[in-house]
Each structure stands twice: as structure tokens, then as C-alpha cells.
Amino acid sequence: MKGLWLGAILVSVFVGAALLSLVWVPYDIIQMNMAQRLQGPSWPHPLGTDHYGRDMLSMIMLGARTSIAVALVAVGIGMGLGVPLGLTAAARRGGWIDEIVMRGNDLIFAFPSLLIAILITAIFGASAVNAIIAIGIFNIPVFARLVRGGALSLWTRDYILAARVAGKGRARISIEHILPNLTNLLIVQGTIQFSLGILAEAGLSYVGLGAQPPVPSWGRMLADTQTMYSIALHLALVPGLSILLTVLGLNLMGDGLRDLLDPRVRRAAR
């Protein structure tokens, strides 16, 4: 439980910063201020300033928005397409839809994800939207597989049989009885994919394939400081720790939620 709380606090700090940045940031980050460049943490700039004299706290807040938005929408794509596919595959177990869904999943898993993300952004241009698509595509099979696996075991339950005897169709049973019972699984996996999405977005931005300037992103902040962080370490520490703490928070939350929501794990108490 401690982990869940720690994770929730970490995540709320960064989500809060991202939300706050929608209405307010301490400084304008479009404006350069060379007189103030490369300053360490101080009262007016709690996280210091970068090589253009921009306030790092403001950059981190806006970067949080980019990272969280990209990862969240990518999870949305994965769930939005993966869940119906997984439900359909399970409802028609062994049928041609099941076969196509599962083989398609195997195929996507065979492609090295980062390589394809780079390919997609290279074909369609580097932007936050294309980064979302690239990350989202790889979330689809994750959710499809998870839902199919979970749904298959539910289909053998007596209450599902009762629903079938009562004359409900497969689609209705999937939505009314199967899906609600998979919510816990989805919440836990969603949290994990969210954290992977944050890491993937940071990696793509770092090689210049994520959000483009002037939209700040944590990955690009790190790439921009590549030649300077040896003289001003906070340039690398601040964005790097932001990524680390957000991902850590999400992972702790995922683990905590799994323990909380899954009675089997709770009993085993690992």
C-alpha cells in the first residue's frame, strides 16, 4: 500500500504540473534571456535556467503536458482498438476473427517497436501526433491479448452460461458481463502502458522524432543539453529525474493497484 501511495503522490505532482501549465507557468519559455543563462537553482528559478536563460521549472511543466498527453492518448488508442478486438476474438474463440487477431498480434510483436516508431515518424514526419500513433499501435496487441486471455476464462463461468440461456447475444454478453469484470486488469495494464509511453515519448523526442520546437518535451530538453550538461549538471538532472520519477510513480501505482484489485495477489502478498 505504501508503494501505491508514493506512486500516486509522484504521479499527481506531475499531472498537477501539467494541468497547471494549461493556465499558468512562472515564465514565458519562448523568450530567451541570455543574461540569466545556465543558472543553478535559486528563488526566482527553483530548478535553474537553461542555455537560453529560460526557466527550467516552466519548461518541465510544459514538458509534462506533452509527455502525459502523448502517453495517455497512446494508451487510449491501444485500449480503444485492442479491447474490442480482444473481446471479439474471445467471443468467437477459434473462429477466423480470433485467428486473424492473434496472428496479427504476433506480427506486430515481431516488429522491433522502437524501429517501427522511428519508421512511422520518418515516413509521416516528426511530430507529437505521429509519436502518439507510433506508440499507440504497439499498445493495441498488448490490450487485445490481455482482454482475450481474461475474457476466455470468463466465458466458461456459470453466470455467462446463464446469460446465454437467457438469450443474450455474444456481443451483449461481452459488453455487459465480460468487460466490467476485466476493468481491474485494464486499469493495471493501462498504468503500465502509460509509463512505457512516457519512456517511449522521451526516447523519440531525444532523437528528434517527437514533439517539435517550440513545444517543450523532456526528451528534447535532454538532447538539447547534450553538449553542455558537463558544465551545468542541472540541465541533465532536472528533465531526467522528471522522466524517472513520473515513470517510477506510474509503475508503483500499477503494482499497488494490482495488489489492491486482484484478490489472488493480495492473498499471496508478494
Binding site: S195, L199, A202, G203, Y206, G219, L222, Q226, Y229, S230, L233, A236, P239, G240, I243, L244, L245, V247, L248, N251, L252
Partner: peptide, 22 residues
């Protein structure tokens, strides 16, 4: 391991370069 999974490896690489190379 919880930390190891959460660290962006390129950032970890940058910090290692600073310490072990520079």
C-alpha cells in the same frame, strides 16, 4: 529494479559518460 525499469536508458548513458568518460 523498480528504479532500473524507470530510468530512461539514454539519460543513464549521459550520466555515465559524464562520470566514467569525462
Amino acid at each position: 529494479t523498480q528504479l532500473g525499469v524507470a530510468v530512461p536508458n539514454f539519460w543513464f548513458a549521459m550520466l555515465m559518460v559524464l562520470l566514467f568518460a569525462i
